[in-house]
């Protein structure tokens, strides 16, 4: 656990030192803030409802693009520059290394989301907000981010090129986000059902609607686990060359 913390801390520090974290947070707050408060026709004052639905929609898509941008360097850069050799010959297991890298990005996303709490407080003070809907909305974003980060980290471990890493992560993201869902509506039978089950949307929507079903939570956590496991195996495989 200690090793995980040390690695996560260093990673997080390097996100902030390289200004990457600041840029991400500012852009994230900028996008979501603009559409929630200022954009014509859709902002809170225009729709006259004390709800954060617009914010959650925008936050969802912003994270969809931001997470691969954060995870793309995590292993790819270490592999490219060779620093992975120093890391992997230190007394940490591959699993601790993967967890450390994973947590650093997750913490960054949590920080970004915490910074949007003033939106919630503001809206809650000007109208009658559905508190339950807000909390499940945040829970949905967190679970979805957790799954995306895990996919992103894995993709980053299979390549030494950051551009490849971000593109592949986005493609896999779109598969889970849209393609599986669209295919599921055209294919019947068990294949269709499987694709429907695999796509993010039904799980995410049911959580954000306020229904916290253990099935949906298990779905996201399984993706996290499979992604992390795949990363660990990819790292271990390098030693066999």
């Amino acid at each position: 656990m200690k090793a995980i913390r040390i690695i996560a801390k260093r990673e997080l520090k390097s996100y902030f030192d390289s200004l990457m974290a600041y840029v991400m947070i500012v852009l994230f707050l900028g996008f979501t803030g603009f559409f929630t408060w200022l954009a014509a026709d859709a902002n809170i004052f225009d729709i006259q409802v004390a709800s954060l639905q617009v914010f959650f929609q925008i936050a969802f898509w912003t994270l969809f693009f931001f997470i691969p941008a954060l995870t793309m360097r995590s292993f790819a850069e270490e592999i490219r520059s060779g620093t992975i050799e120093y890391l992997m010959t230190k007394p940490v297991s591959d699993w601790q290394l993967v967890m450390g890298k994973y947590l650093s990005v997750f913490i960054l996303i949590v920080i970004s989301l915490l910074l949007t709490l003033p939106y919630y407080i503001t809206v809650a003070s000007i109208g009658d907000i559905d508190h339950n809907e807000v909390w499940t909305g945040y829970l949905g974003l967190l679970l979805m981010s957790a799954a995306y980060i895990s996919i992103g980290i894995w993709v980053s471990s299979i390549s030494n090129n950051q551009i490849v890493a971000i593109l592949v992560a986005l493609v896999i993201g779109i598969l889970f986000q849209l393609i599986f869902y669209i295919m599921a509506s055209n294919i019947s039978g068990w294949i269709g059902n499987t694709l429907y089950y695999l796509s993010f949307r039904p799980h995410y929507e049911s959580i954000t609607r306020g229904v916290i079903d253990s099935k949906d939570i298990i779905y996201f956590l399984s993706i996290v686990f499979v992604g992390l496991l795949a990363t660990e195996l990819t790292l271990a495989k390098r030693k066999f060359n």
Partner: peptide, 8 residues
């Protein structure tokens, strides 16, 4: 090749 973190 002594690969170090250059930004640190």
């Amino acid at each position: 090749n002594n690969p170090l973190y250059h930004d640190l």
